[in-house]
Design a protein around this nucleic acid. Sequence first.
DNA 1: AAGGTTCCCGTGAACGTTATCGTAAGGCGG
DNA 2: CCGCCTTACGATAACGTTCACGGGAACCTT
Lengths: 337, 337
Amino acid sequence: MGDAEGWAPHPSVRVTIDDVARVAGVSRQTVSRAMNGKGEISAATRHRVLATIEELDYRPSAFARGMRTQRAGTLALILSDIANPFFPAVARGVFDAAAGRGLAVVVHNTDADADAEREATRSIVDSGAAGAIGFFEALDDESLVALGRRLPLVVADRRAPGEGVASVISDFAAGTRAAVEHLYAAGHTRLGMLDGVVGVDPVRRQEFLAVLTEHGHPQPADHVVTGPPTVTAGAAAVRELLARHPEVTAVFAFNDLLAIGAVRALREAGRRVPEDVAVVGYDDITMAALLDPPLTTVHTDKYELGRTLLDVLARRLDGHAAEHRLLSPRLVVRGSG
Amino acid sequence: MGDAEGWAPHPSVRVTIDDVARVAGVSRQTVSRAMNGKGEISAATRHRVLATIEELDYRPSAFARGMRTQRAGTLALILSDIANPFFPAVARGVFDAAAGRGLAVVVHNTDADADAEREATRSIVDSGAAGAIGFFEALDDESLVALGRRLPLVVADRRAPGEGVASVISDFAAGTRAAVEHLYAAGHTRLGMLDGVVGVDPVRRQEFLAVLTEHGHPQPADHVVTGPPTVTAGAAAVRELLARHPEVTAVFAFNDLLAIGAVRALREAGRRVPEDVAVVGYDDITMAALLDPPLTTVHTDKYELGRTLLDVLARRLDGHAAEHRLLSPRLVVRGSG
DNA sequence: AAGGTTCCCGTGAACGTTATCGTAAGGCGG
DNA sequence: CCGCCTTACGATAACGTTCACGGGAACCTT
């Protein structure tokens, strides 16, 4: 029948550091030393203490420890939308690497909203997280530097906002260049782009326009249509693009979701892909290879990104300076363009 | 140049409950009362204290609070693989509902491994989480009941393991029945199934066999091929199935990933889908509708599942008895079968 | 052999909050 | 006007860990 009187934890007795000390015949400070490897302690007593810890199944209180150290064994992962297929793969990499170091990961979903991102940072600081990994898409650099002063911080796919903040970035310029050059090599001269919402990462758009200019095809800004990074937005964006410039024969998209929406909308509009209009996406999410036609896209190793993010954070936790790493994407040519 | 001497937090002074008490001209106990709404306090002083809290931007220490209450403002979400497209949508629902209640969510990725699930439960108990939501696929009922005695627990897509543990389950029997009956209605009589790894949830397989029996087609167990829930495993499984039973004209899969792999392998084997072999999946992950042919599948509202899980957990936290909810899926007929 | 080092280890205090108990002030019936 | 109950608040004591000291024993050093 359950307990209608509310949930009451069982009265289980907690085994504390003092219990271990008593059984091992030492002081609690010595137990602390044995656990944390700090301070001087003889190998003999350390082993003895560790044995009693095992024996009593002693588990230090995260609260009490955090109270002294002001730091928990947990870290934060900030991202805009876990339902966006790009992020789960990254998160998986972070989780796996974190588990290897005994760290728990709390995930904050922000929808790329500035207030949500700010609230997440507050929550993280309050929680005393050991560190944070963030895909910040709306917050200003100043706030990030401030956060970086409170705890080790690594920003992902965003240039380092200032001193002390590490970063791991996929080389969007190189990836974009590879994609657009590929379209030119295939004979296309009228290109359009479906960009993500104008935010802190204008690299793809900038590089797209730069390559166009190099090929002697400077195009007005309205060859770039903007929308949120979703399939439906991609469909709408490509319709908008075709309405403005029916002569376009190739489309480069900010990410695969936009590209997928574009392919669908193009077909509904009676254009064949890739015969009439070529489409190239970005990210190479899992479904890209499974579609018909399979999507030509810029592959980024998302799992590796996740692992790298945690690696950089871990090194920072270990006292190293803030690093900045660049990951290289590669174009994967499939059927769509 | 960064701080090579290791990461040192800024010396920022923390504003404590005593600071608030002093400024407001009350004792810290009164401040505590004003915050938590417990104990007797006059409306006037409560407002005064709350105002000072706001003014000083006081944020109670989660560690100190947890030390007293043995409970943190965080909850755990245990799942097997965040990279499996089924889970991100659920997670999103959990996150959104949790954010509405000011709870942080720490995610544990287990790969459906018993040891990993056990380790996750240990971590959760140690962290003093307020509650937990879990897709447990390997852990025994006894362990779950034990966990449920330490904190409010809701199991997902698994029958309640015992007293005190809440559950939210998608009605797999109904969904499976709808799918298989649909295949019969389309004229198929030789059916095979691609099952997930044999684990704690045999419902889909059982119901599949039950429907077959009702139609007078009891089939030997080797019409069911088992594999992990991935695309590649689906391809391998359907090849195995065809090797055993070339006469099969319809395949029901444990989930969409298996179904997608099956479709690809069938085509590579020269069979048309759905003309030669019909394929029906389960879950209706996002990509199901985008494939060619679009996948016929059993739709479950994953986001709603996430929200419901958190709702049930929250009610448990508020002192209600453990609930058990059943969510109804619905068949979505598309091109694959 | 006396004094200085080094190596271990223990003692007391502090981190910031909530639970328990105590108590003063006010209201009310007698 | 006195005892009693209620209401509102304060004082004290934990919760379990680590940090800053300090001290004793063993080992050198001269």
